[in-house]
Amino acid sequence: MEQLKITIALIIAILLQLTLRNVAEPLTYIDFPLIIVVYAALQRNSIKALLFATIAGIAVDAMSGGLLGSNAFSKTLVAFVVSEIARRVYLDNLLLRIPVIAGACLLDDLIYYGMHRLLGQDPLGSLFITMAYTLVGTTIAGTFIYLFLDSFSSETLKRRKRDFFAPRRETRRRNPIRLGRKP
């Protein structure tokens, strides 16, 4: 179920990315595929996140004036970094995910811009202005999208939290040593 949800979300994200700029120019600063790729990476399944990142990146690159594979390259790298962090740190809280999506957005933009410069291409506009707008747009949109996606899997989240904290409580209850008492 979770797999299907993220796959559908990714397809919708790609379609939105390809069409929304024609509806309103500022919507170009929201990177929908990146939001879903980071969400997939936060599920601690690195392989799925990497594959999603590459597919989404190439789909966007094919319709863009930039180099083919540049979005795929940056998003794949971001997906790996996020999934590795998510494996080591508890990031199921929405508040903790906000800096993650913001950091992922900055890293993605830097890699994308850097790869173009490396291969002799000059992206339009100022690096800092475009990065700032993308950071704000993607972080705000990402927060709401994560809330929306999580609402579909609250049961999974509750079960995960229960599993995460249960062994510690159990150990405390069974510990025969009590403070202030002699064994």
Partner: peptide
């Protein structure tokens, strides 16, 4: 359709 990337 317009460029999906803000950079192009």
């Amino acid at each position: 359709g317009r460029d999906p990337s803000a950079w192009f």
